[in-house]
Design a binder for these strands. Structure first.
Lengths: 229, 229
DNA sequence: CACGCTCGTGTGGTCTAACCACACTCTAGG
DNA sequence: CCTAGAGTGTGGTTAGACCACACGAGCGTG
């Protein structure tokens, strides 16, 4: 076993045993190196991995923002991993879109109609109603709207996967808008569809919400020219 | 931006531009460090992250297995990320199980009845028919069977996510068997259900296959005492 | 000529020691 | 009492050295 993996296992053990929890802080790198009898280099490699996994955040200086503290951001980890594998062209974009439809349909049909996340979603729709908004700003709000819907279903894993799928193709999605014949018309349609989806969820009509979401996403990508496998 | 991220972006760029593909090799660490005008330490931190993401594999010595070569193993990345976040107790096991049901149901209903993966799945079922097999051996075959079904649906993202979900709770699943009143009876039931699922898929009855898979997974965890949220 | 051993070379793996930038905290001076 | 400065501890980065490993070329021996 390589040295940095030893450090990794030690930290994972501390997490599993509850000796280290979200918001807690790792020992300083030099301290940890001495404790585990390894070099600071190996400790740092382990921390780099945890950072990439969204498990810790490293901050310089001193004070509450400094040091290496435990966080929990699964979306970051899954998102960058998916993005890299898309870059290697071993994960087709069409598969990502298909998975997104699958997850979002499920989330829409399982969303709690009285969830507080839906209030935030409604507010986002109002923000998107400004005419002449920059495309990327619109897309950013769109991402947050869809994430809010996913959160309303109350499954942290589905939320994280949804977010990561979306994150892995943000650059791609931004390019796609160039293929659209008429962005303004598309934006208007998307806004209408958003309202219909939200209304279906609030009316406790999960089945209808799921169908609307699927059509919403598939319609957009079809218009933008992504081939379905 | 930190130095290792510069290296990371450079490599990701090479991947996106196709200058680096699966099977290809990164320049040697010392060479890369000189090219990018950074220290070898920073190069190594970047490579550690890519390795954790399942994008490269580092090998010592010389020859075909040596050097840092580009691979593509999304399952590894997602799996270890999920496992770590389960350790922080920010991803409930019940959510993982629920997501697994969701993905596997979809895969079962979209599996191609004439897919070659199903042949492998059938062979796995035969291997599982040995009485008195060790529990962990049985579970290992069970994982491969379910993965084969997922692969038969032909969506690489769903396959990777499925595998990673399963990987993230293998340790947990092994403990769970201790809660079962009668392992031999459970194993026998699981084998029967596996055959029914496979048969439904081969008969092109996706709807039935999906229902069977959902009942199969949920029944198991219920028997083992995992509370549904 | 054919076989087998040895040594050279290049790879990643690890470690040490030093310095930097940063942000807070304490303290001395106004 | 307030403020400016030194002090302290954090992660960030670098240079240089040495190790273990695996292949392959070259040499020696049969």
């Amino acid at each position: 076993m390589r040295t940095h993996q030893l450090v990794l296992h030690w930290i994972e053990g501390q997490l599993s045993e509850g000796k280290l929890a979200v918001g807690g802080r790792l020992p300083a790198e030099r301290t940890l190196a001495e404790q585990l009898q390894v070099s600071r280099t190996s400790v740092r490699e382990a921390i780099r991995i945890l950072e990439a996994m969204g498990v810790v955040r490293a901050g310089v200086g001193s004070g509450p923002e400094a040091g290496t503290v435990v966080i929990s951001d699964p979306t970051a980890a899954l998102g960058s991993a998916l993005r890299l594998h898309v870059a290697t062209q071993h994960l087709p974009v069409s598969d990502i879109v298909q998975t997104r439809v699958l997850l979002e349909s499920w989330a829409a049909s399982h969303a709690h109609p009285d969830s507080p996340e839906l209030t935030g979603a409604a507010r986002l729709l109002e923000e998107m109603d400004v005419d002449g908004m920059a495309v990327d700003d619109f897309l950013a709000l769109d991402v947050r709207f869809h994430l809010a819907l996913a959160d309303a279903a109350g499954n942290a894993v589905v939320s994280a996967m949804m977010g990561s799928l979306r994150e892995s193709i943000t650059g791609y999605a931004s390019q796609l808008t160039g293929n659209l014949p008429d962005w303004d018309a598309t934006a208007k349609r998307l806004r209408t569809e958003h309202r219909e989806i939200l209304e279906a969820i609030r009316n406790n009509d999960g089945e209808r919400a799921a169908k609307l979401v699927a059509a919403h996403i598939e319609g957009y990508y079809r218009e933008a020219g992504v081939r379905r496998s």
